[in-house]
Nucleic acid binder design. Structure first.
Lengths: 223, 223
DNA sequence: TGTCAGAAACGTACGTTGTACGTTGTTCGT
DNA sequence: ACGAACAACGTACAACGTACGTTTCTGACA
């Protein structure tokens, strides 16, 4: 209680709050992330957070931004298509580490680091062989693949972070009986069997090759 | 007030609630969708809803399911790749009509109609020329494109449904100054100029052609 | 036509959320 | 040593989802 109290906690700054938010969201899901819980986790009361962040929305934005900083950029000498590939894979890895992030990525305003993440992909596309129009479309095609794949991939993990996977599967099969939805159930089974691990990169390459081909078509037709 | 009251309202059933929810979400965004507001909109009190739906989550699920029923399936005689194309376009059109839906699609458990929507795409893929593995990957590639594209497309529309577009753009350009993020700002400008209207179908075709090519490669290598 | 059971609507109320506001404590430049 | 600036706290409030008990309506059968 005195000023010489040995267990004096560190004085709480923005980064610590953001880190705690990410930790909690990783562990329990972002759906149950609460200001009071974040504060508890740090040993403070809820309102203490507001000296360092302006709102919960601000916190979530900062959390997503922090995740963007985890995504390494390939070295500058890396050739464009390879760089895009690695960058996409690194982005997906980040979403694997933070399963709640993908679902928020698309519906939240980007902060500075996320903007840098966007800028990187666009800059590599700009120095690639793709024409400007294909580069624009390619940006979305790649982003959509990475984000969409990550979301679907962990939908089951995230939907209800609490209970086990089989409870989720059972609930789904209740509304989707095998006899009426055979393909859907077969597809789900393929996922549960887990022999789809290379499909992310496969479709990614499919898109990259397709972009190169489209650009070649477009520029040759124009010429 | 008496039993002969002329303005006697209709007695409130599940469908009416779901419709009201969709109407409100379309008009004001799903972020401010409230049980009390849905009830008000129908001329009832909040708790009356619970005679017909079991929870807010149930309502949202039903709303998304209702949107799935708006998506027409191409006629059975339609050849597979054409059917997939039309179906994807119809799905995106539905997301255009209901800007809030795409963001929830990926993080919500599908109901019966959404399951039918999934089943349709899988069934068409199954009767296409694609091998089973490519069909599996193609399902995700197509879904991710449609969903991801729709989300990004209306991110600005949805993020804050209240204020005008230029207020949003200004806020963004505050965290992303043109000199530090030239490509990002140029990309944004391309969107604001609106000459990207055909890119959805272009990338869609790119994916479909890519899938056909991958499948041909795979089956020829195996043979 | 009278009655009565079940469904539908209502009112009230509780726990939880984000956060505004006023107060207290702590730190640091002078 | 002292006062300003800032950090943490406690209290409090409005809005949310929804549990529960009560009232009102309706329609099947006597």
């Amino acid at each position: 209680m005195s000023t010489t109290d040995a267990s004096k906690r560190t004085p709480l700054d923005r980064d610590a709050i953001v880190r705690a938010g990410i930790e909690l969201a990783d562990a329990e899901g972002v759906g149950v992330l609460t200001m009071r819980r974040v504060a508890d986790h740090l040993g403070f009361k809820a309102m203490a957070l507001y000296n360092h962040i302006s709102s919960k929305e601000d916190l979530l934005k900062a959390m997503l931004d922090a995740i963007a900083t985890e995504i390494d950029e390939p070295p500058p000498e890396c050739e464009p298509m390879q760089a895009i590939r690695q960058h996409a894979i690194a982005t997906r890895d980040a979403f694997l580490r933070h399963p709640w992030a993908a679902g928020l990525w698309g519906v939240t305003m980007p902060g500075e680091s996320r903007t840098a993440h966007i800028e990187y992909l666009l800059s590599v596309l700009a120095r690639s062989d793709l024409d400007a129009e294909t580069a624009h479309d390619g940006f979305h095609a790649i982003n959509n693949h990475v984000l969409g794949y990550s979301m679907q991939e962990q939908a089951l993990t995230v939907l209800f972070a609490g209970r086990g996977i089989e409870s989720l599967v059972n609930e789904f099969q209740e509304t989707a009986p095998v006899d009426r939805f055979p393909h859907t159930n077969a597809h789900l089974q393929e996922h549960l069997d887990g022999n789809t691990s290379t499909s992310f990169e496969l479709v990614l390459d499919l898109i990259l090759e397709g972009l190169a081909r489209v650009s070649k078509d477009r520029t040759s037709h124009t010429a």
